[in-house]
Write a protein that binds this DNA or RNA. Sequence first.
RNA 1: GCCCCCAUCGUCUAGAGGCCCAGGACACCGGCCUUUCACGCCGGCGACACGGGUUCGAAUCCCGUUGGGGGUACCA
Length: 509
Amino acid sequence: MTIAPATPAASTAPADEVRVRFCPSPTGTPHVGMVRTALFNWAHARHHGGRLIFRIEDTDAARDSEESYHQLLEAMRWLGIDWDEGVEVGGPDGPYRQSQRGEIYQDVIEKLRASGHIYESFSTAEEIVQRHEAAGRDPQLGYDGYDRDLTDEQKAAFRAEGREPTWRMRMPEEDLTFTDLVRGEITFKAGSTPDFVVVRANGKPLYTLVNPIDDALMRITHVLRGEDILSSTPRQIALYRALIEVGVAERVPEFGHLPYVMGEGSKKLSKRDPQADLFLYREQGFIPEGMVNYLALLGWGFSADEDIFSRAQLIERFDASDVNPNPARVDLKKATAINADHIRRLPEAELAERLLPYLQSGGVLGEEITEEQRALVAAATPLVQTRMNLLGEAPDLMGFLFVADEDLVVQDDALKKLGDDPVAVLDRAITEIGAVPEAAFAAPALEEALRAAIIEEMGIKPRLAFGPLRSAISGRRISPPLFESMELLGKASSLTRLRSLRDRLAVQG
RNA sequence: GCCCCCAUCGUCUAGAGGCCCAGGACACCGGCCUUUCACGCCGGCGACACGGGUUCGAAUCCCGUUGGGGGUACCA
């Protein structure tokens, strides 16, 4: 028995450790489909006690941007998708931005050249098509392998013409089969995948090469990615085999291709689509808990009869092999309903805190929030918690509590259907409320007094009895509960508002 | 053209041969509760794309058709 060679530090992890990665390109704003991919990778890692590696694939200088990179980080942090190795946090296999890994790739490229897995190709796209046509083949067939076995003289001749070659992968001439975690066994027929370019003429490697290299070097065990790259899997498997041969990779990882996320109709959610923009959801008042829940439902089901679940429950149950292969459509109504459920699950104090930025952007609160305002938001939160689907609805729902009495706008809508004699109702309410001592100015006492006077004594139906009061207090036909609202407003303010509407109606009337 | 993926209520899905004349959620429609609106509760509407097999038995397995989608780049 021989002594095993010392294992490199990076390989001290258990051999069966699940290692997954999320490796977006920093182009544009975070897209829900992309975020869903991140979420599933994260959930898979956490469920299996594995690690999530966050890598950035910025090999396309023309499209990548630093702004987009920062948005990616922000999206992950907002949703609480944390990673164990990668950008910002580091790890044993860095750097984690492909733009900084040039030397690593050159080294691997050299090995692939030496082993003959990749070869120089001088053909132009036009020449390839011409050759197909000349031979009576379908011109759309793709690269024909023309340069596979060029002699040194031929290469020299092309160079003499001033041509710079790309490097192509020599694809094996055999069926390529793998077992997809979500789709089962998939076979690509021999010959259906032409030799593809792995290194540009300018020497820069392409995604198709660099992605498997990094996955190999980072010892990724499960690749969970979008269905859109399903058809590049045979290329990557061929590359993995080559990488194993040259000693760069240890294994071919397992693949799982997650279903598309579609918009309305059956179109793939485009980057331009507002439904695709994660931050737009946040702006409207989706909370991370709701967003994570909804996103997870895009291609996966928590259980046969429950749709609402927490992050912890997601981790507990998620497994990539349970993902449904059908494309999923974004349903804003359902997303909103799920978000509403999560809002209701929030502790009141927590919700109150999260409401603040929305009240600020909605103009209800200024940049500086006073202690009184904070306290009022906290006190009003239970009144709106079941009345909100999105946090962005808060300004509309709660605004009346924060405006000065003289600035309260009574909407037209709230002036209709107030009964036969709203002035009398308001007068009576003013009297009753005026009689409630400051110290006892609370919802139960107010309700008791107003019911006794207006409903019982005056004989007016509850709907018509409280309608005018609601309009006076909130300016709305629909509002949070009336008595609680009065309590929050206080006696003076409540009376002022009641008198104001009474006077207005008396003049008109 | 060639290659690959997908196919259950309007939408997301449960369903891995009998438990399914198909369950849940959202939406929609009724009702209850009720100071408005919500919440909550109760009920209703509503689907296995089609055609062949295999089997005692198929939403579930196989084949085909049709319909969607993707790839076929010196993008990722």
